[in-house]
Simulated scan of single mutants.
Amino acid sequence: MSPDKNPQDMKPLTAAAKLGIYLPATPEEFRNSPVTRAQLEELRTNPPEWLTELRRTGPFPRDVTAHKLGISNSGLSRNGVSDSLTADEIAALLADQPDWLVKERANLVEVRKEAERVKAKEAERRAASNRPAKKRFG
């Protein structure tokens, strides 16, 4: 594949989201300048020390924090958790789980079970509608 003749720039927020990092925790030079697709790919394949450290210790963005805690993004919001927890803060919450975290984890399990049930029911309905109709004699 040939290199881009006119590289597309993306906002630092978009690049941070694609890298799974919390933008305010990045170096100022990253926050204040657009990122090309080539630069993003270079960050992915050959991450600098600041990116490696940020991915390891955080702070993490909301979606990564929720995933590490095993709850939904909404669960974080319902319980007033900031979207910038560090690895140590997450580990502390997981080690001594408060009641709200236990409830949110159970809630996410139930939501996923229900989604699977609905998906299976929908697949069954689609399969039934694709069967040839029975011939009626009259």
Rank of each mutant, 00 (worst) to 15 (best):
W50G: 08
L108K: 13
S2Q: 11
Q39I: 00
G75E: 03
T14V: 15
T52Y: 02
L94A: 05
E49H: 13
L43K: 02
L85G: 01
E110T: 11
A38I: 05
D9T: 12
Q8I: 14
F137Q: 09
V109C: 06
D83W: 07
L23Q: 04
S2R: 13
N73M: 14
L23S: 06
A17M: 09
M10W: 02
V118C: 00
I90K: 02
F30P: 07
A133E: 14
Q8G: 05
G138L: 10
P7K: 08
A15L: 05
L93D: 06
L108A: 07
S84M: 07
L19Y: 03
N6I: 12
L94Q: 12
P7Y: 09
N107H: 15
A133T: 13
R136C: 07
Q8P: 01
V64F: 06
E29K: 11
R55E: 00
E49S: 13
L43A: 00
G70L: 05
A92M: 08
V81C: 14
A127K: 14
L93A: 08
T65Q: 00
L54Q: 14
N73P: 01
P98T: 03
L13T: 10
A38E: 15
D96V: 12
Q8H: 09
P7N: 09
W50R: 09
N107T: 12
P34W: 01
I90E: 05
A87T: 00
A127V: 05
A128N: 10
G80I: 00
A106L: 14
F30C: 09
R78N: 11
L85M: 05
S2A: 14
N79H: 13
T86K: 00
Q97Y: 01
L76Q: 09
S82T: 13
E41I: 02
V111Y: 12
K18V: 03
A95M: 04
I90S: 07
K134H: 05
G75K: 04
S2E: 13
E104Y: 02
M1V: 07
I21L: 05
A115D: 06
E89A: 14
L13F: 02
R117F: 01
A95E: 15
A25G: 14
R37V: 07
L43Q: 00
A123W: 05
A133Q: 12
A120V: 08
K11F: 09
V102W: 03
V102M: 05
K113C: 08
P7V: 05
A120M: 11
S33Y: 08
L93M: 07
E28W: 10
F137K: 10
T36C: 06
E89W: 07
P47L: 10
K5A: 13
L101G: 08
N130R: 15
T14Q: 15
K18A: 11
K119M: 07
D63G: 06
E116H: 11
P3N: 12
Q97D: 04
E49N: 11
N79P: 09
R125C: 00
G70M: 07
L43S: 03
R55S: 04
G20L: 00
G80E: 11
L94I: 03
F137G: 04
E116C: 02
G75A: 06
A106S: 15
R78E: 10
P3S: 12
L43F: 15
